[in-house]
């Protein structure tokens, strides 16, 4: 499927991906994305009518562990790598007024 990638598509994808891009970066990113999409257009050759997607090698399902309590991270361990914390919590910018 050929897709023309313009600045609006890149802006929307970057927004979804939570990546800050400047307007100056948009043309290069659009060109990169369009080149990769041209590469993957080879998939159009394959007839996949009636073929179910294979999303994971283990189609028999996962093997969760027994549902019993166990010791996880302590609060101190969970916070140890946080770049900003306050009062035992991760610190975010103000989100309400």
């Amino acid at each position: 499927m050929a897709v023309h990638v313009d600045a609006n598509i890149v802006r929307q994808v970057a927004k979804l991906a939570k990546l800050s891009l400047t307007d100056a970066e948009l043309p290069d990113v659009a060109r990169d994305l369009e080149r990769v999409l041209a590469l993957v257009a080879v998939l159009d050759e394959v007839d996949v009518a009636g073929v179910a997607p294979l999303v994971h090698p283990h189609e028999q399902g996962l093997q969760p562990r027994a549902d019993v309590p166990h010791v996880g991270l302590t609060q101190a361990q969970a916070l140890a790598n946080a770049p900003a914390q306050d009062g035992g919590c991760f610190l975010t910018p103000r989100v309400i007024g």
Binding site: M1, V40, V46, V48, V51, A52, P53, L54, V55
Partner: peptide, 12 residues
């Protein structure tokens, strides 16, 4: 057109 198609080709 992209992810689902890739997963179908993955099965092939």
């Amino acid at each position: 057109a992209f992810y689902q198609k890739a997963c179908r080709v993955r099965r092939k």
